Amino acid sequence: MSLETQIPEDLKTAMKAKDKVRVNTLRAVLSGIKYLRAEGGHDEISDDDVIGIVNREVKKRRDSIEMYESNGRPELAENEQAEVAILMEYLPAQLTEEEIRQIVTDTIAEVGATSPADKGKLMGALMPKVKGKADGKAVN
Rank of each mutant, 00 (worst) to 15 (best):
D135S: 12
S64N: 05
L30Q: 14
R62T: 01
G41V: 02
L87V: 02
E75L: 01
D48H: 08
R101S: 07
V104H: 03
N71C: 00
M127L: 15
N140S: 14
R56T: 07
T96S: 05
Y35D: 13
K34Q: 11
M1I: 00
R22P: 02
T5S: 10
E39S: 15
E9C: 09
N55T: 09
M1G: 07
E98H: 15
A109D: 11
A113K: 11
Q6P: 01
D47Y: 14
A14T: 01
I51E: 05
M88A: 11
L26I: 05
Y90L: 10
M1R: 10
G41F: 06
E66A: 11
D19P: 02
K34V: 01
L95W: 08
K121V: 14
R61M: 14
P8K: 13
N55M: 08
D63Y: 03
A134L: 07
E57M: 04
G40P: 03
K121A: 14
Q102I: 11
S115C: 13
L36C: 08
V23P: 01
L76P: 00
A93Y: 11
P128I: 09
R22W: 04
R101P: 02
M15I: 14
E97P: 09
T96K: 05
P8T: 05
Y68C: 00
T105E: 09
S64Q: 11
R37Q: 15
D118H: 15
I108R: 14
H42L: 13
K119S: 11
I100N: 03
G41M: 08
D48W: 06
P128H: 12
T25C: 03
A85G: 10
S64L: 07
M1D: 10
A14W: 01
K16C: 10
L91A: 03
L91E: 02
E57G: 01
V23T: 08
A82E: 05
V130A: 12
G112M: 04
E44Y: 06
D10H: 07
A17T: 06
A117R: 09
T105D: 09
D106A: 13
L122K: 09
P74N: 00
I7M: 06
T107S: 04
I65F: 10
D135P: 10
G120H: 12
G132R: 04
E78T: 01
S70W: 03
A38D: 13
T96E: 07
I108P: 14
K34S: 09
K16I: 03
P74V: 03
D118P: 15
E69K: 04
S31N: 15
V54S: 02
I53K: 13
V23Q: 02
V21R: 13
P92E: 11
M127K: 15
G136C: 07
R61V: 06
G72A: 01
M127I: 15
G120A: 12
Y68A: 01
P74F: 00
A138K: 15
I33N: 07
Q6K: 12
Y68M: 00
E97R: 09
I65W: 08
D118N: 15
T96R: 07
T25N: 03
R101F: 05
V54R: 02
L95Q: 05
I7R: 01
S46E: 08
R37P: 09
K119D: 02
L30W: 11
K34M: 06
Q81R: 13
V29F: 05
K129F: 12
E69Q: 06
Q102A: 14
G40K: 11
